[in-house]
């Protein structure tokens, strides 16, 4: 089995309304050294290893479903996992 961990965040050019709300709270709590908060999504895909090109497959899944590239960026890593 393989596992693809996908991290989705809003693009740098896009104001993150959740991050903006969170940073205001952090500053109110005295964490003045926090300069930016970006809140995103983390997706775990468990994929049967059939020897196919996972990079192409994961990218397609991201761009067709998990990520709206108008406003979001993503990165991912593919890991080998032990059979359960």
């Amino acid at each position: 089995m393989k596992k693809a961990n996908v991290y989705v965040t809003l693009r740098e050019s896009v104001i993150d309304p959740q991050g903006t709300a969170a940073i205001n709270v952090l500053h109110a709590k005295g964490h003045d050294n926090v300069k930016d908060v970006r809140i995103g999504k983390y997706i775990e895909l468990t994929i049967e290893d059939t020897g196919q090109d996972l990079d192409t497959a994961v990218r397609e899944m991201c761009e067709k479903l998990f990520v709206n590239t108008n406003v979001e960026d993503y990165r991912y890593e593919v890991l080998e996992v032990e059979e359960a």
Partner: peptide
């Protein structure tokens, strides 16, 4: 595209 409302 759409984002969460400015005021959450």
């Amino acid at each position: 595209a759409f984002l969460k409302n400015r005021d959450q």
